[in-house]
Nucleic acid binder design. Structure first.
Lengths: 327, 327
DNA sequence: TTGAAAGCGCTAACAG
DNA sequence: CTGTTAGCGCTTTCAA
């Protein structure tokens, strides 16, 4: 920058302002500076800009598992929403582990990201706030109903789950099992709770043996489905905490010689693109991934404007059942 | 850091070295410093570290379209390979557009990423080298056979395509069409060329009307497939430049009342997870996404060690056909 | 084993 | 409309 200033016969300050537009610069000098910038191939150093201005134009985006098709859909919307405002995403993958979540979070803070978007799997919101400090803009994808420690975007999973249980009930199916995610962790736990409540309300029978926990993978679903379907009195339907699990459960049903949906009806959650492509086409609860991502990006951008003192907001997006072939 | 130094009764230099381990520090002072760091909750500022050390421990990863399931698989392997070495990925989505590729690339350079991984869609390797400068470590996912301007990881797409054509030929199918990506762009163009060569070699007939170009989306595949199948003398099989296109082509065949594979056989490329889930299960060429990602990460790490002067390397990963139901 | 001094490249505050 | 000065928070010589 000093070279540019010298060649243009002005001070570095003026070069800075000519480039940033933060201060008026006469048309003549600006043109001269731009010319020199071009001749010399000068490119501002964003690291130095960040150090001085205390802004990195970078957002940390922590994703649980990018292999799960739900996340790329969210990530795309987050990226696009942020890119439009000139922000770039630093990506971290946590696989839902507490250690990884904390380590990645600390690294992002050290890197001075301007804000964070994450779906907490193992860490509580208050712990996250503690790690990142009081002033870091954070948007949590979470349905935690307690005190807010950050802006929060949630999906009304209970509603979609209730719709699914009612749908089965109205088909005369009153013995239903549930394959959840890792025990005690969001979002599986929330969906399981919602499932139990909905079943109770309708008098749908749920034996303890019909509740399984598994990692959110196809293999996890296969293992859980196999256990569940092997139990003496198997249920007539299985609701799954996500579509990837449901695919595994369908594998298990097929291997057990059971027809879907005639012998066991299967319902998923998320409505990933694959849901409409597999056979039987998956009946599932639509989780509006792109909306979630976009809403997060907008919430973060709003927080940048509002500053840290404005009260945290909670936004809820609704889910709904889409009936296809598997149930 | 100054505060820590003062509280520990040492110079900032010593604090820096106690934390980085780049210089020996007596056990006693190190312990004292670590204690103070803990008490004060001091966290090093990575931006300042980067400015001074000229290293950001950040890698730019440009992805064409994260909605296409092939990319998350690559991204995951890239991320994991890099994370193990302490690098974080800055992600950019280009949608294959030249402007976006150039803009994002420039931004990454301005942000002083230590290296770049990208699959060029619109920009040539030499243009990329020109944009990022002579010393930036870059790994290109590309099968460009010309002069190398960066380390390159390629998949031997021609081999998989040839296998596919031979497979069809051996089934007695000698009228074959091809649905490629955007005209003239990698990787569609490469795969089309390989297809033509393989067809020629075996005497498989390929009418001009049987070659279609479309964006790499399901909708693109649907449109291209519809046009192709509407032509007077339609082919007995269609090879697609990727699986997402193939899914769209299957949609088109279904809508046209054609059975797959009996009326039209369909072959994809990539072997995304969905390929094995859809009905009919997709016969496709396996593109080793995780291997590609891991190989890129390793190539970049090696380049970091080797420096800019060592000759660029080209690594090739092989592809192969997996026969399922659609052909 | 430690410290002093310099400076990475930029922008903000102040001054004119 | 423009310049001077200071300093963001670190690490790297150089010196002891």
């Amino acid at each position: 920058m000093a070279d540019v200033a010298a060649a243009a016969g002005v001070s570095p300050t003026t070069v800075s302002h000519a480039l940033s537009g933060k201060r008026a610069v006469s048309e003549a000098t600006r043109a001269r500076i731009l010319q020199v910038v071009d001749d010399l191939g000068y490119r501002p150093n964003a690291v130095a800009q960040s150090l001085r201005s205390q802004k990195t134009k970078t957002v940390g985006f922590l994703v649980v598992d990018i292999s799960n098709p739900y996340y790329p859909a969210v990530a795309r919307a987050v990226h696009d929403g942020l890119a439009a405002a000139g922000y770039v995403s630093l990506i971290g993958i946590t696989y839902g582990e507490a250690d990884a979540e904390e380590t990645v979070l600390r690294d992002m803070v050290a890197r001075k990201v301007d804000g964070l978007i994450m779906q907490p799997m193992s860490l509580s919101a208050s712990r996250i706030r503690q790690i990142v400090g009081p002033n870091m803009p954070v948007v949590l994808i979470s349905d935690d109903q307690g005190q807010l420690f950050a802006d929060q975007v949630e999906t009304d999973d209970a509603r979609g789950i209730a719709e699914a249980v009612r749908y089965l009930h109205e088909k005369g199916i009153d013995d239903v099992g549930f394959v959840s995610g890792p025990d005690g962790r969001t979002p599986g736990a929330t969906r399981l709770t919602a499932f139990r409540a909905a079943a109770d309300a309708l008098g749908v029978r749920v034996l303890d043996d019909w509740i399984e926990h598994a990692p959110f993978t196809r293999d996890g679903g296969f293992a859980a489905g196999s256990r569940l379907l092997a139990s003496g009195s198997r249920p007539r339907a299985i609701v799954c905490a996500n579509d990837v699990l449901a695919v595994g459960v369908i594998d298990a049903a097929r291997l057990a010689g059971l027809r879907v949906p005639d012998d066991v009806a299967i319902v998923g959650f998320d409505d990933i693109e694959t849901a409409d492509l597999i056979s039987p086409r998956l009946t599932t609860v639509v989780n509006p991934a792109a909306m979630v991502g976009l809403t997060c990006a907008e919430a973060l951008l709003r927080r940048f404007d509002a500053g840290p003192d404005e009260a945290y907001r909670r936004q809820s997006l609704s889910t709904h059942l889409v009936a296809r072939e598997s149930a």
